[in-house]
């Protein structure tokens, strides 16, 4: 096996990077891939609680880097999926405890044993971001349909392109289709217009995600969850499958129908 390395990043905090990482990990592992998720947010460890593995942590990423444990000892096995693992972030250190070279080395050691390595990047554009992106061969940028989040995504796209990581792909998270229909939320089309980047997924706002996070059991495990379904589709696209984008936000209200009658093919 030679793992592919995907880093999930955003620039702005709170857009759902950690949720996306946990859900993509679950979705990929459910589909039969061997997956390890690395929490790259040194000092603000969170991926462990979103995945529900906080009680199993003994060693962390910095312990591996500083030689206090073997790589294998810091790999935490998921409770539900036998092919899913987590390497948690250190909680009592900061970003300077890790360098981009350290990340590249750790990931290189993981590569033979996995199909996918997912790295949850911290917010911001400093050291932690650089560490998370250094080993990546695929960068997924998470944004929300808000001016501030899209602006930060644009900044990140520029930085990723400068690192010559290949074109990053966009996940639009927490879309409220009703608000988009009313014209009160940026649509995915609006966002793609200004960012000029390839889309890999659109995730609707979904209360099940909140409940899932409360329980430490990612929504991608729940067949009823619309967000979970969106993450499973992203996982399939990551593996090269051509999964059509379902229109969450078609303007098929009264006005959509009217404008199409008036202007066939429009709306």
């Amino acid at each position: 096996m030679t793992a592919r390395i995907a880093t999930i990043t955003s620039g702005k905090g709170g857009v759902g990077k950690t949720t996306a990482t946990a859900n993509l990990g679950v979705a990929l592992a459910s589909a039969g891939f061997r997956v390890v998720c690395i929490d790259g947010d040194i000092g603000l460890r969170n991926l462990d609680v979103v995945m529900g593995l906080e009680n199993r942590i003994v060693y962390d990423l910095v312990d591996i880097i500083e030689g206090r444990c073997k790589l294998r000892q810091a790999l935490i096995k998921d409770k539900r999926l036998s092919d899913l693992y987590l390497i948690p972030a250190a909680q009592t250190r900061d970003k300077t405890a890790v360098s981009p070279q350290d990340m590249i080395r750790v990931v290189k050691d993981l590569k033979p044993d996995f199909d996918w390595v997912l790295i949850d990047s911290p917010a911001g554009i400093e050291r932690g971001f650089r560490n998370a992106v250094a080993p990546a061969d695929l960068v997924l940028i998470v944004t929300n349909p808000e001016v501030s989040a899209v602006r930060d995504a644009d900044r990140i796209i520029g930085l990723v392109e400068a690192e010559e990581k290949g074109p990053p792909k966009l996940i639009v998270n927490r879309v409220k289709p009703e608000m988009v229909k009313r014209g009160d939320m940026l649509s995915t089309g609006d966002i793609l217009d200004v960012l000029a980047i390839e889309l890999i997924g659109v995730v609707p706002e979904d209360e099940i995600v909140t409940v899932a996070t409360n329980q430490g059991s990612p929504a991608a495990l729940d067949p009823r969850s619309r967000a979970g379904k969106a993450f499973r589709e992203i996982a399939r696209r990551m593996n090269g499958e051509d999964v059509p984008f379902e229109s969450l936000e078609s303007k098929d209200g009264f006005f959509g129908r009217i404008s199409r009658m008036v202007r066939p093919g429009g709306a």
Binding site: V147, R151, D184, D190
Partner: peptide, 27 residues
């Protein structure tokens, strides 16, 4: 419906315009 009839601008359009302007300056 009535806001549209009155010709009010959807706030998403305002967001897009502001975003485009700020990105031109950022870039």
């Amino acid at each position: 419906f009535f806001e549209r009839l009155r010709g009010e601008r959807p706030s998403a359009q305002t967001a897009k315009d502001r975003l485009q302007l700020v990105l031109v300056h950022d870039r």
